[in-house]
Nucleic acid binder design. Structure first.
Length: 740
DNA sequence: GGGCAAAATAAC
DNA sequence: TTATTTTGCCCT
């Protein structure tokens, strides 16, 4: 694995500078500068090589960022070079760019692209068998079938050959003993490459036009961004598959990015149906050896298509010809710890550096992407209709002021009646409520005490199944007491408001004869069982589904014809600058789940504010109007994508300390930059992971609409701040387009 | 000033 | 990130 000094250079490369060379090596630590090392004679190095270098008293991994002449007599020497694929120049350029843009140390950005080479050792050799042409002494019918299947002398995997010949593995072993088959080592390249001409999909006219446009831009090569916008069910996937096919036909590679949650088996088989083989899969669940294999395959070109979550963006592709960002509006593309980056934006940067087209696909694009399309920075392709003449679900509101639920209930009689009728027709109903747990607030009906998180300002949410009060902000959990902690009265605690668990209780009472299931991210039994239940829902096993936003993503439910949104106002009043956009996207996706099977669907939104622009847009189907209004509102408020925003995040184990330091930083920033109104403390910044690590985080929002150099501003703010007191960390997040 | 733990800092 | 150095705090 390691090419040590005492071993000859197996790759056979000649040493770059025999007179003596110096390598500038970047190590994956919180360091911004590459360190210089002497290249020992006999070690052939090239920029991008993964090397081992001494660092202080230990040895560490690094990447050669630059090579230059010089004897480097006063420097430590590079210890060795790994047999891992070198980082292509364009990828190094991307990493430098991201470091500069996000103000992260270059070493931390490098970390994103390095996955411990050498760990796990070499790939275990897979053994296969190959026909030798020698006949066995006795030729039985079973043996005849095996030899027929193995004809041609190509190597076969034992199990697959046995299956193809409809015999047991014992027959194969027998033939090996006879010398008719010989064992051979299978090379990893035996994995078939996706075939762009395997099974082209029949496309609608609108799809054909969009696909042709994408094919043209991929075939022409060069950088460009295209927004592929299509209502749910319009067949965006089939269209961007054609972009992937065009890249393959041009002899190039393709990458499809998806939010991790959308990467389902359903998607992979769809890909296999089009290209004859599933793509390489890259996400947090892919571990060890497989990761390394994909890494190497991508670098060598043995892998031509990868489908992956945001980190796949840093794979060492050499010949990328197309990059698709599916569900581009998803917040999951934003990395919130370590290096703060938005994978969609960085995908575009990679496209610009390497010169290939980028496709952003969504039924509900983000505001910034729509603005970029309107300003012609992105091309826009629209799929306005559902595939196969299927109508979009009719969306109507239930005005809760006029048709309120019965006391202590949450479902309006109008919705209950519609659900009843749907169930009688043998169709499926989804009650959607984006609130986990039993009740969002617990209070004492004697003294009015409300349970609040000790760390955050949020209320504690009752989870009846777990018998706990949980903070959805930071993960803090405590046992639900029997008596009020404030006034000590017993049995006076009451749940206020509904969560999905409580809704399920009401549903069971209203429709006792119908099987129902509750689906949310805290589903008991973990991801495995959850996936199983989702499949059962898709198969129509549950007439009633009660679910949170989890059911809005990825899965297709062909039996679903009625979606009842129990509280359409959730998220509209939260004060989040992206609240309207998020709610619109979520409800559009959820209501779009109805009527994707044989029968038409409809959706009912329970709301107190039917006239709200988001609700009105959903009902009228005028997405365009929503985008126009929201864009105008953003422009007026100086919010993204019009205001330039960045943030400093101040973290410390102690809440008071973190806040005090955040305020000190704001004062320093104001003094240095002199825009008193454009620096605001927001906080506490939610960050479940940070809090699990025992850190409280405060976010300072820097809003500079004027043509100020954002980076200069931030550096000045940090430089002018008092020296950070002990145990406080400040991280910087520059993200003008997608702040929240 | 010793002994110990926590915090700060250098790493080519 | 990790190993080493410095600082802070309690004690005698």
């Amino acid at each position: 694995m390691m090419q040590r000094l005492d071993r000859p250079d197996e790759a056979g490369r000649t040493a770059a500078a025999p007179a003596g060379a110096i390598a500038d090596v970047l190590v994956p630590l919180a360091l911004d500068t590459a360190y210089s090392y002497r290249v020992p004679p006999g070690l052939a190095l090239a920029p991008g090589d993964v090397v081992q270098v001494p660092l202080g008293p230990r040895e560490t991994l690094g990447v050669v960022w630059n090579l230059r002449a010089g004897d480097g007599a006063n420097l430590k020497a590079v210890s060795g070079c790994f047999d891992a694929p070198a980082l292509p120049p364009a990828l190094r350029e991307l990493l430098d760019w991201i470091a500069r843009y996000t103000l992260a140390p270059r070493g931390m950005v490098l970390r994103l692209a390095l996955r411990d080479p050498g760990r796990g050792g070499p790939e275990p050799l897979r053994l296969g068998v190959r026909a030798t042409g020698r006949l066995p002494r006795r030729l039985t019918p079973a043996r005849r079938r095996v030899l027929a299947a193995a004809e041609g002398g190509l190597p076969h995997i034992k199990r697959q050959l046995a299956e193809a010949a409809a015999v047991s593995a014992a027959v194969i072993d027998g033939l090996v003993d006879e010398g008719s088959l010989e064992p051979v080592v299978l090379t990893p390249e035996t994995t078939p490459l996706p075939d762009p001409d395997f099974a082209p999909t029949a496309l609608s006219v609108a799809q054909q036009e969009a696909a042709a446009a994408l094919r043209r831009s991929v075939a022409a090569g060069g950088f460009g961004v295209t927004l592929l916008e299509g209502v749910t069910g319009s067949g965006k996937t089939d269209v961007y598959f054609e972009a992937v096919a065009a890249a393959l036909q041009a002899g190039r590679q393709a990458l499809i990015l998806m939010p991790e949650i959308a990467l389902t088996g359903q998607f992979l088989s769809r890909f296999a149906a089009r290209f004859g083989t599933p793509p390489a899969e890259w996400h947090s669940g892919v571990g060890g050896r497989r990761r390394e294999r994909i890494h190497a395959g991508v670098a060598s070109g043995a892998i031509s298509v990868v489908v992956g979550a945001r980190s796949a963006l840093f794979l060492p592709f050499d010949r990328l010809g197309a990059l698709v960002v599916d569900e581009e509006h998803e917040a999951a593309y934003k990395q919130e710890d370590g290096v703060h980056y938005h994978a969609r934006d960085m995908a575009i940067v990679r496209g610009r550096i390497e010169g290939f087209p980028v496709v952003l696909a969504s039924a509900t694009p983000s505001i910034e992407t729509r603005v970029n399309a309107e300003r012609s920075r992105f091309a826009r392709l629209l799929l306005p209709e559902r595939f196969g003449q299927r109508a979009l679900p009719a969306v109507t509101t239930i005005d809760l002021r006029r048709d309120p639920p019965a006391r202590g209930h949450w479902l309006s009689p109008v919705l209950v009646e519609a659900a009843q009728a749907t169930l009688e027709r043998g169709e499926q109903v989804l009650f959607f409520l984006n609130r986990r747990g039993y009740a969002p607030l617990t209070l004492c009906r004697r003294c009015g005490h409300r349970f609040q998180c000790p760390n955050c300002s949020a209320w504690l949410v009752e989870h009846r199944f777990r018998r706990a009060l949980v903070c959805h902000h930071c993960g803090h959990a405590e046992r639900r007491p029997d008596s009020c902690p404030a006034c000590a009265a017993a049995d006076t605690l009451v749940p206020a408001g509904p969560g999905v668990e409580r809704l399920a209780e009401e549903v069971a009472e209203l429709f006792p004869q119908a099987r129902s299931v509750v689906l949310s991210s805290d589903f008991p039994g973990g991801t495995e069982r959850l996936r199983h239940e989702l499949a059962a829902v898709a198969a129509g096993e549950f007439p009633i589904v009660v679910g949170t936003q989890l059911v809005a993503k990825g899965h297709n439910f062909p039996h679903l014809t009625l979606v009842g949104v129990v509280d359409a106002d959730v998220g509209l009043t939260s004060g989040d600058p992206r609240g309207s956009e998020r709610t619109f996207q979520l409800l559009q996706q959820v209501t779009g789940r109805a009527g994707r099977g044989a029968r038409a669907g409809r959706a009912l939104l329970q709301t107190y504010q039917p006239e709200h622009p988001v609700i009105a847009a959903l009902v009228s189907g005028e997405a365009e109007r929503f985008y126009a209004e929201e864009t105008a509102a953003r422009r007026a408020a100086g919010l993204p994508p019009f205001g330039r925003l960045a943030s400093l995040i101040v973290a410390a184990p102690d809440r008071g300390e973190a806040e005090a330091h955040a305020r000190a930083l704001v004062r320093a920033a104001q003094a240095v930059a002199g825009f008193p109104d454009d620096v605001v403390v927001l906080g506490p910044a939610e960050a479940p992971l940070a809090l699990l690590r025992g850190l409280h985080r405060f976010r300072i929002l820097v809003k500079t609409a004027r043509a100020t150099d954002m980076q200069g501003f931030l550096r000045a703010a940090l430089a002018g701040a008092p020296r950070p007191p002990q145990r406080i960390r400040v991280t910087v997040d520059v993200d003008p387009q997608s702040f929240f």
